[in-house]
Design a protein around this nucleic acid. Structure first.
Lengths: 266, 266
DNA sequence: GTCTATAGGTGGATAGAC
DNA sequence: GTCTATCCACCTATAGAC
């Protein structure tokens, strides 16, 4: 019943513009869309159900009717996007591995499949666009327990597959090191897509400006594209950086070091 | 002790273990310490004044007496740490530039001064330790306006100095590109120190485990040190990565080029 | 400086009519 | 499915005694 033929399925990422209009529950989708935007703008805790329902022009009780609770609402906001995203990610990896016919993938391919797939969502408003990306970036650092366990469940498969792919792609790098760097890459991405950067307030500019789109505001689509173009080389550079040297020193090289030959940056 | 004579100054980072004990306001510091921890554990919005005051064993009204409001309390929690941190960062840069005698600094030196100075705070409980680092990482992605403008003010000078240093250190890299990468580096660091990673829940391990400290728990000190050893090479690798190629392609190289239609979920 | 008491408001959730 | 009305726990902030 859930997935086939003409029945209404629960994930709105299956929304063609036509079926979206007046199906069984216009309300449900409107709540999700508005909640997505408001959670992004104000954060989860600071966004009240009343704010959401009045912006969505639905009754307060509708949220609890459709989703059960505020927590469940947030989870559903993510589920409808992440289900699609993670499926795409797995599929992308499948295809790459099929092409490679048993050979290890290149790191750049793996990163493209993982991060590129996400960043491309920012270009497509029907997939949530930058609103969803920003919300995701912000929510990934929320301390609330239910959020963290929810994400863990959503990501478990995907992270595991990609970890293994990276292990194979970088056989000379210790696995622990790869996991650390995956961690760092996730961080750089989250923060970048969250777009709440100190830099932006300090420099008084948005990422769009940096991309060179100062006046005519090309919108989120171009921003997402530029972001991807800038971020991917950075991530790849970080992933493939020389391994840290472990001596007995408490720190690699304090500000005024013995200038021992590290990796000779000029 | 830190600066002048014997007057009590307001920043607790001027705390030698002795002066901290029973000065004019033990209450004030206790509130700040407890607030720092609880804001880190639950986030700003989800932490109530009542929770803070009861944990600190002070009266509810004490917070408003000493700080004026909950927002002001959060700002003061940060100010007492960031004042010290940013001063150290500027000083580190001053010293490096003095040594260099007019020559551009090496990127690794700049990163060490900026990120190393911060990460070393994680090793020193009297500077807030990992509690402060985690709180900082989490708060940097909070959408609340007062937080963002507060950080902007605290960081303006420092970011500006470091940006200029990086421009000089990497004269062949477009300035916009450097700013983007600074952005990415801040993100990787924030996320790493926040320690709310999906990876940790998925893999079921803390960063400490990855560092190889499985059983005997050496505490935050070792964690901070390991983190720095792992993070700095990653950041340097990302900063020095090859520049992105800009062709007319909308994306560098999608894995399966134009599968545009519908949502292609098979 | 510290405390009690409370003002004054908002939060999430639900019961029950339609 | 939708709506009104309402419960009640909890919030920040302050007034005023000590």
């Amino acid at each position: 019943m859930t997935s086939i033929s003409s029945v209404q399925i629960r994930y709105s990422w299956a929304s063609d513009p036509m079926s979206d209009q007046k199906t069984t529950s216009d309300t449900r989708e409107r709540i999700l869309d508005v909640a997505e935007r408001l959670f992004m703008e104000n954060g989860y805790e600071a966004t009240s159900m009343r704010t959401i329902t009045s912006a969505a022009e639905v009754n307060l009780a509708a949220v609890n009717y459709h989703f059960g609770s505020k927590e469940a609402l947030l989870c559903e906001v993510f589920r409808r996007r992440l289900a699609w995203l993670n499926q795409q990610r797995l599929q992308a990896l499948d295809e790459l591995e099929a092409q490679a016919a048993g050979a290890p993938l290149k790191p750049s391919q793996i990163l493209e499949a993982f991060f590129g797939t996400l960043l491309r969502m920012g270009e497509d408003p029907s997939l949530g666009g930058m609103t969803f990306l920003r919300l995701l970036g912000r929510t990934l650092t929320e301390p609330a327990e239910f959020i963290r366990t929810f994400f863990a469940g959503e990501y478990a498969q995907v992270i595991d597959r990609y970890k293994l792919a990276l292990f194979r792609a970088l056989p000379d790098v210790p696995k622990a090191e790869i996991v650390w760097r995956l961690h760092f890459m996730l961080g750089a991405m989250s923060y970048a897509i969250a777009g709440t950067d100190v830099l932006q307030v300090v420099t008084g500019c948005e990422l769009g400006d940096l991309a060179g789109e100062s006046a005519d505001d090309p919108g989120d689509t171009a921003l997402a594209r530029r972001l991807a173009q800038r971020l991917m080389p950075f991530l790849l550079g970080g992933l493939r950086a020389p391994l840290p040297q472990f001596h007995e020193l408490p720190f690699p090289s304090p500000p005024t070091p013995p200038p021992r030959g590290g990796r000779g940056d000029s």
